[in-house]
Write a protein that binds this DNA or RNA. Structure first.
Lengths: 208, 208
DNA sequence: TTATATACAAACATGTATGTATGTAAATGG
DNA sequence: CCATTTACATACATACATGTTTGTATATAA
């Protein structure tokens, strides 16, 4: 076998991640062996062990590939450019929810990663801390949504006495549920095809 | 070893289910071997294979132990006794959500089973159909909630133009999200301790 | 009372995943 | 141009998990 250049190695690494995601989706994280991942990526386990310590590290790499960009987008969509001449915080919240669904619709990689994380992974031992990471991520998201709701209240966009914090939590729980159902509803009839409409309903409920 | 009576055998079967639940919670479904379950139940794998064909069937038994009663309760709490002199459908919806949380709070068995199903199981191969079962369960629940919301609208309990179907879906997604977060939030600070308050907020949003 | 089915325990055979150690050819730095 | 990494492939050792088979003492039915 020929030794690869650094760029070649990076490609190999990426292909291993892609192969892992596809095999995880097919057989679940536990039942996917590193041998299966390797052969699906047209390498041997040697390559996998060269790039990643073990399956858990490979899983984390797969996860971060979609989670890091997600967090960046959150800041932009939800709060970015705060000194807007005609701000529409409620519209921003809606846009954030809609664009997240849009990404799931458009990007197979993100969709598969979500499906793996929600229904094809067991959060025990080395994977247990992922749940904590998800939770702290949530509390960050809720906090940002609360700020957006607070602004919406300032400019009189919302028609309810409830606090911004309460509204943000309710929206977050709604959207968590939607994501879970969206992912599970692979046929699409119940939630996937109606996601945008469901978001519309949810926003309407708090509009003035 | 002595041959047991039928009652003894039933006890053994139940102890195997209990042991399975506890081990699943600890190590995840995949990483729990039937040997671990057996020894934790103080029997051998022979007993496990006598009562169940394999791990999947044991998992189903564990699941049905909490799901079948749950569905029964749903009918009672949400719709039961429809010819009430002073009906309070919105209150029934609230009660249903609250009592579900109450059960999770009180009953360790139900709590553990939910946690296993949500974060310690991979829905692939023999377990894949469980997701379908969950989905059809959801659509049944949504349907019943829609009926309750329709009655709430009839008697003018809700203060929004949205349809009963839309309200039911939004509530269902909210509650799905709440259950997921409740289960994951083992510390309790974010959702578990505030669940009842979150339900209150959600109901208030649609009250007249 | 006896034959049979029950409720397991114990032993066996097989397959498979993991981690590590070693080999190696080519890229890269000096 | 040479020494040293790099980027893997190959081989090895170990450890389990699973399913099945066999053995057995005793409830239970006839």
């Amino acid at each position: 076998m020929v030794r690869k250049t650094k760029e070649d190695a990076a490609i190999t690494r990426q292909r291993i991640i892609d192969a892992a995601r596809e095999m995880f989706l097919l057989k679940g994280v536990s039942r996917t062996s590193l041998e299966q991942i390797a052969s699906h990526a047209s390498v041997t386990r040697g390559a996998v062990y060269w790039h990643f310590q073990n399956k858990a590290e490979l899983f984390h790499a797969m996860r971060e590939e979609v989670y890091l960009p997600l967090i960046d987008r959150m800041d932009d969509t939800l709060l970015g450019n705060t000194d807007d001449p005609s701000p529409d915080p409620l519209g921003r919240i809606r846009k954030h929810l809609e664009s997240t669904i849009q990404i799931l619709d458009d990007d197979q990689t993100t969709r598969a990663t979500y499906e793996v994380m929600m229904t094809k992974c067991e959060y025990v031992d080395e994977f247990a801390d992922v749940l904590q990471s998800i939770l702290s991520n949530c509390s960050g998201l809720v906090h940002k949504m609360e700020q957006a709701y607070a602004k919406a209240q300032e400019i009189g966009q919302v028609g309810t006495q409830l606090s911004a914090a309460e509204l943000a939590l309710d929206t977050h729980l709604f959207f968590s549920g939607l994501l879970h159902m969206w992912v599970k509803d692979t046929e699409g009839t119940l939630f996937r095809n109606r996601a945008l409409q469901l978001i519309d309903t949810h926003i309407k409920l708090r509009k003035k």
